[in-house]
Amino acid sequence: MNEMRSSPDRALPVTPFGSLISRRILIPSERTNLVAIDKYFLVQLLGAHVSRIRFDEGWYFWKYPDIMKAVEDGKVDTARDHYIADGYYEHRMPYQITVDEGWYLHQYPDVSAAVQRTEFESAQMHFETAGFREGRDPYAGFSLEYGEPQYA
């Protein structure tokens, strides 16, 4: 197995671009400007950025009891560690995000219709169960908030 892929916790070596391609860590498209990237390499690249996102451990445990159990069982050190290494990429929310109901329903007519059909109780419920994962914004100008930088 390629040593860069063996562990997401290892420091990222400085490697020539051609080496990343020859090792198939990066796979450039021949027809577009898109590049496929090895997941562990991506996690390493984004790690410092993701670690700056505001994180509410109590809320995360409440929302994701599987993570509380994983921490209790020693499968992961902390909820924050889980979020940085996996939760962000699993589309888990790092803290409670409040939806602007009127804006959300206006912005997403399909959600408005689903709420009217009682498929979802509210815009907030849609966002928490599907919208966040789908990349829908909960309000105009949304961005995950930064907290204090925390590096593993």
Rank of each mutant, 00 (worst) to 15 (best):
R24W: 00
G87D: 06
Y104L: 03
P13I: 07
W62H: 13
N33E: 13
A152K: 08
G47H: 15
S22W: 13
S7T: 13
G131L: 01
S143C: 10
Y146G: 07
R54Y: 15
R31H: 14
L45H: 01
Y60K: 08
D66L: 09
I37R: 02
A152M: 08
V14N: 04
H106D: 14
F61V: 03
R10Y: 12
V50E: 01
Y95H: 06
F61P: 07
R136V: 05
Q124P: 08
T78Y: 15
P13S: 00
E128M: 06
A48S: 10
V71E: 03
F17C: 04
Q116I: 10
G18K: 08
P149A: 12
S6L: 15
D137R: 10
H91C: 08
G131P: 00
R5G: 01
Q116D: 13
P13R: 05
Y146V: 09
E134Y: 11
Y60S: 10
E119L: 09
L20W: 00
Y146N: 13
R133F: 05
D56S: 10
E121R: 13
V71P: 02
S122E: 12
Y88H: 11
D77T: 09
D9A: 13
K63H: 13
R52H: 10
A130P: 02
N33M: 06
M93A: 09
S19T: 15
E128W: 04
G135S: 01
I97W: 01
K63F: 04
A114K: 02
P28S: 08
T129A: 10
R117N: 12
I53M: 00
V14F: 03
V50Q: 04
F120Y: 15
S7R: 11
S29R: 08
E128A: 05
L34R: 12
I21Q: 09
D81C: 05
L42T: 00
R136S: 02
Y146H: 12
E121I: 03
E30V: 14
E128I: 03
T32C: 04
G102P: 04
F41V: 02
Y60W: 07
Q116V: 07
F132H: 06
E119I: 06
S22G: 00
T15G: 02
H49N: 09
H126M: 10
E90K: 13
F127W: 05
R31G: 05
A85Y: 14
G147K: 03
M93G: 03
S29Y: 02
D66M: 10
G131F: 12
S29F: 07
M68D: 14
G58C: 11
Q116S: 12
A113T: 13
E145Y: 04
Y108N: 05
G147V: 10
E134I: 01
A79Y: 07
